[in-house]
Design a protein around this nucleic acid. Sequence first.
DNA 1: TCGTTCCCGTACGTTAGCGAACGGAGATAA
DNA 2: TTATCTCCGTTCGCTAACGTACGGGAACGA
Lengths: 238, 238
Amino acid sequence: METPLQTTISNKLLSLLPPDDFERISGKLEHVLLPRGTSIGKSGQPIDYLYFLTSGIGSIVVETPEGHRAEAGMFGFDGYVPTSAVADVELHAHDVSIQVDAEAYRMSFADFRHAMETNRSFSRVVIRAMEAFSIQLSYTLASNAIHDATERLARWLLMCHDRVPGDEIALTHEYLAVMLAVRRPSVTTSLHLLEGSGFIKSERGKVIVRNRPGLQEFARDAYGRPEEEYRRLMKDLF
Amino acid sequence: METPLQTTISNKLLSLLPPDDFERISGKLEHVLLPRGTSIGKSGQPIDYLYFLTSGIGSIVVETPEGHRAEAGMFGFDGYVPTSAVADVELHAHDVSIQVDAEAYRMSFADFRHAMETNRSFSRVVIRAMEAFSIQLSYTLASNAIHDATERLARWLLMCHDRVPGDEIALTHEYLAVMLAVRRPSVTTSLHLLEGSGFIKSERGKVIVRNRPGLQEFARDAYGRPEEEYRRLMKDLF
DNA sequence: TCGTTCCCGTACGTTAGCGAACGGAGATAA
DNA sequence: TTATCTCCGTTCGCTAACGTACGGGAACGA
């Protein structure tokens, strides 16, 4: 006897669906590997597929007309991209790319729209996820205005840590600098600061979380609320 | 003969509805006055009503656990609040209040949910508006990370100016400081800078826009993209 | 009319973060 | 092994913005 597909799928949103409703869309899902650096979409380009990650991390990056870039949000097994598809918009609003090797189930835009129209549970879950992401946006926004670089770095590492197994996160300072919209050397000094307190260990091309509670206490204000909201939103859905 | 209600309602979202679909919800709308300072909702509190402004401005404020505050977004006749209601969430995610005397049509949460379930055009418009707001969030987020206080001030004034008739905006430096998440004296100096270039005139308790194109050119990068996206999203809806 | 309250202007020392640049050390491929 | 490339550490001078504080003028109420 086969294991039902749903129990093997570790995307939070898909796993929340009542089994019958999951059954109705499972045929439309295609399993794909998304290595680091994969571009899932570019601002202004058509949305081909919707992605439900089961592992790894991706990020959504805003680019201003003059070419300044900043990370708007992060997603992993907890979400899906791009959220604009709920609004029946055919174009990507932002750039989306994979930053930690990922696996995902994907679904064509047409199938997604059809599911939204005909599958109440599905649309309910997806809209909740959009709301959750929107809350993440608002707190990142506040963090950018309120917290200094080191606090924001701590927050960012915690958010990554939530989405990967183990304590090792593979990324360069250069990359972190883009994510936090600070200079590359600022990342270096901030990492040293966190390392000095023993919260992390920083090596060439990777960061290892050594003391998560410490990191969390350091980030204080900057981390936690959106995560609480996410849990609240995904509870008692049906 | 009476003028049809819809033609007298200047909320962009409501005016986009096909007349028949508007007819089906018009009975649920109650006209209200919202003077400056009115609180429409507090984070964690139940959502009683959904508001569709026809004039004035409101703002959504994020508050961190430690009490730091920053404006997440702004809305006027172009939107509705709170957007979390689309996700069938009964609680406010943020604080919402009126910053420029407003008028609005409001609808109970129950009526709103009923309309979402039974009125396709309505849910379509409302979800688009949520997407538009989410895009506004992402650009404000980027702006907080990238632009200096004066550019952000210029952006903010332009966004206000888009939503009020005339060139006069009533607000104190103290208030602006909260909106931009900067010190009050920083607002003063930034305003002087803009005034020095002749873009605005700053008086006790109000700012007057004198040269909008100039202001817009000064803000460059910081202003424009979300507004374009809004127009794109609200075009060809039906 | 006079006190009180609310806003705004300004100042000062301090700090975080910027832009730019250079050098060194780890990884990679010939 | 050697050359090359990527990534990280550090420096320097500079500016924006901070926290704090004080004073003055406008508005308002008694």
